[in-house]
């Protein structure tokens, strides 16, 4: 089973399999002429290639749910509806949306199951989340003893703040939990952490840069390598939480464009205020 953002793809027995290759004109025969380069598929290769199609489908329209529904509350033929409104004011709010452009390759996000984003961690903590509010790690569902939070400059101080609150919440759930914060060696970050120090006993703050994360065979714990002014240290954690930079959701960016509002004036987390466009207000998550 391959897990990608917003995907659930089963590992069919024919995965992995190379693409069938098309015939191509050799490079040395391409110079000085304009002959077709891509020569296309032979029939058997084409059928083989077509068989690689996963035939993606969500609801398959089998109607079993309707057969089971006593109330007859399912309407497969329901169409999209168009609504036209005329309003005096527009208030734009943004939800929690994160940039996924952090050097995730380095931190192993998507590769190591126990590396989670702060949003995933919020879901894990939440009572209405996938685990019913039990703090367990995504690999084997066991309660972690040691969690590392990674905050980067790209993530910013806002994200750090969110992570601190998550750490406090996690401590509430598992009293003996050890937490380490890795943050850039800059005053803004360290001050923000220190301000909350008293609220989180059992927290350690490590200044410096996270160099690499390595997954430990078997336990799937994570070995984190970090350096501060040349000193390189290694430490093992049950789970890592990445603090991601909040960003505006795509639909807000689109709407702002349509309304001629510069997106840079829409500050994430800001309190309700009118934008440069009269009648349009913006509020961040409060």
């Amino acid at each position: 089973m391959v897990e990608e953002r917003k995907r659930y793809i089963l590992e069919f027995t024919d995965i992995p399999k190379e693409r069938q290759s098309v015939n191509e004109l050799p490079v040395e025969q391409r110079i000085n002429n304009f002959n077709q380069v891509d020569l296309g598929f032979a029939e058997d290769a084409a059928v083989e290639e077509a068989r690689r199609c996963l035939s993606c489908r969500r609801c398959l329209g089998c109607g079993l749910c309707l057969a089971e529904c006593d109330k007859d509350a399912i309407d497969f033929g329901q169409a999209d509806e168009m609504l036209d409104l005329s309003v005096d004011f527009v208030i734009l709010t943004h939800g929690v949306e994160r940039v996924y452009t952090l050097p995730s390759e380095k931190f192993g996000y998507g590769r190591y199951v126990n590396v989670a984003t702060d949003i995933e961690f919020e879901r894990i903590l939440s009572d209405d989340g996938p685990y019913g509010g039990m703090l367990i790690r995504p690999f084997d569902g066991e309660i972690p003893a040691k969690i590392g939070f990674i905050c980067t400059e790209e993530g910013g101080v806002d994200a750090l703040n969110f992570a601190i609150h998550e750490a406090m919440m996690a401590k509430k759930k598992v009293d003996s939990l050890e937490i380490a914060f890795f943050c850039p060696d800059e005053d803004a970050y360290v001050k923000e952490l220190e301000r909350n120090y008293d609220n989180i006993p059992g927290i350690t703050v490590k200044r410096g840069v996270v160099k690499a994360i390595r997954e430990v065979q078997g336990s799937k714990n994570l070995c984190l390598e970090w350096s501060n002014k040349g000193d390189v240290t290694e430490e093992e954690f049950n789970m890592i939480v990445l603090s991601m930079r909040p960003q505006l959701p795509g639909y807000i960016v689109e709407l702002a464009k349509e309304l001629d509002i510069d997106i840079n004036e829409l500050e994430i987390g800001a309190l309700l205020k009118e934008t440069s466009k009269k009648g349009v207000f913006f509020a961040g998550t409060m």
Partner: peptide
Amino acid sequence: WVIGKKTEFMDQGNKYGERFTRHEIGRLLD
């Protein structure tokens, strides 16, 4: 239920009127 619908899916289509190819049915079943 699903296997009982297979022929219907390929000949008449599902609840949305979409007809399945043999290949699709295979993927779906797997």
